[in-house]
Amino acid sequence: MNRLSSEYPKDPRWSEQRGGRNSPIVEATRSWMLMRDGTAHRRLRGLANPVFTAKAIREMAPRVTGIVHRIMDEMGSGHDIDLIGRLACQVPVTVFCGLGGLPVEDRDLCRKWTDALGHVIDPSVDETTRRAMNDAAAEFGDYIAEHLARRRANPQDDLLSRLLLAEFDGERLSDGEIIANVMMFFMGGHETTVNLIGNGMLGLLRHPDQLRALREDPGLIDDGIDELLRYDAPIQLVARIATEDIQVGDRTIPAGAKVMILLGAANRDPRRYTDPDRLDLRRPDVRPLSFGGGPHYCIGALLAKSEARLVFSELVRRYRDITLSHEDVVWRPQVNIRGLSELRVDLMS
């Protein structure tokens, strides 16, 4: 038995903080593979896995490349351009609308919902975020249900259709499970990719030698993406519940205790990485924990990394000079998700 559980919706206090057991957001999270353990988790993941395999991501690459190029064409060049709003936020939600079978013209609406849903994994929630995440869960759920009904009548080559038809050990997903996990995919794919692009670009701008190295050898991004993930992780921590007493050094974590696992700190452990506070795209043997590990390793990690590689490659190809417009940057006020509210840059073609 795993000594740590992800099933936070079973915790009455956690559920109550988010609106109660029957609130839209808590009902949704009870079906998220992110918050299931054991057989239930394996079933959900097994049904969704084929959409996120390396082969599937390779087949998707031309479509993603076209999306990145179109968004950068719209962004253009000039002074004081917000790289978060104009690029980083646009790419993943546009890709996932296409992948998921949702209209691309609704990407801003989907992004509004996923921004609100992201607060569900915050260690604490206030009344404003609680109301926003429940409104988003209800509205997004109804929206996905409408498109799911259309796909049932007319299947396409997209995530909704594949999840409707998928079988694992003779079982299929219920409509509620599909709706909840499509929400989760949008939220997870959006948060990780936006912050990987934003945090990674800020890291390169503050280490001009590394940005210069990437210009001289664009192939560095193939492995260098893991260094960007290590240096400034989009997800800084994950939370678990101890299912039994666990001994760590001379301390005992009692069964039932909440455990915060600091991924960002582990990524900069000096026992694992020499000079860990330095960004080095040529750093050998980089294995960041930014996407978690074990059974709950992020199912969309390959897609997020593929999108980010394309973005960084195109940025250095397209712009001869990229500089910060302002030294001061604004971070989003969240504990576990580390990302910029905006990143103002000057882009010279």
Rank of each mutant, 00 (worst) to 15 (best):
residue 202 L to C: 11
residue 306 S to R: 11
residue 144 I to H: 08
residue 142 D to N: 14
residue 159 L to H: 01
residue 168 F to Y: 15
residue 32 W to D: 00
residue 50 P to M: 06
residue 70 R to C: 12
residue 221 I to E: 02
residue 308 A to G: 06
residue 119 H to D: 09
residue 154 N to D: 15
residue 263 L to M: 10
residue 85 G to L: 04
residue 10 K to E: 06
residue 173 L to K: 07
residue 144 I to F: 09
residue 81 I to G: 07
residue 137 A to K: 03
residue 257 A to G: 12
residue 44 L to M: 10
residue 241 I to Y: 00
residue 225 I to E: 04
residue 104 V to W: 02
residue 188 G to P: 03
residue 42 R to G: 05
residue 181 N to A: 08
residue 290 S to H: 04
residue 114 T to H: 02
residue 36 R to N: 15
residue 26 V to W: 01
residue 164 L to H: 05
residue 148 L to G: 08
residue 327 E to C: 07
residue 126 D to V: 02
residue 322 I to Q: 03
residue 166 A to T: 12
residue 34 L to C: 07
residue 15 S to K: 04
residue 32 W to C: 01
residue 94 T to A: 12
residue 268 R to A: 08
residue 151 R to Q: 09
residue 135 D to W: 06
residue 74 E to I: 09
residue 135 D to I: 07
residue 201 M to T: 13
residue 83 L to R: 04
residue 163 L to D: 01
residue 56 A to R: 11
residue 277 D to G: 15
residue 41 H to V: 07
residue 81 I to F: 04
residue 107 R to Y: 05
residue 226 D to R: 14
residue 272 R to E: 11
residue 348 M to P: 02
residue 39 T to Q: 15
residue 57 I to Q: 06
residue 163 L to M: 11
residue 237 L to Q: 14
residue 40 A to Y: 09
residue 79 H to C: 15
residue 233 A to T: 13
residue 32 W to A: 00
residue 90 Q to D: 04
residue 347 L to E: 10
residue 14 W to Q: 02
residue 105 E to Y: 10
residue 168 F to S: 14
residue 293 G to Q: 13
residue 57 I to L: 07
residue 324 L to T: 07
residue 131 R to M: 04
residue 26 V to F: 03
residue 222 D to V: 11
residue 156 Q to K: 13
residue 209 D to G: 08
residue 122 D to K: 01
residue 30 R to V: 00
residue 343 L to W: 05
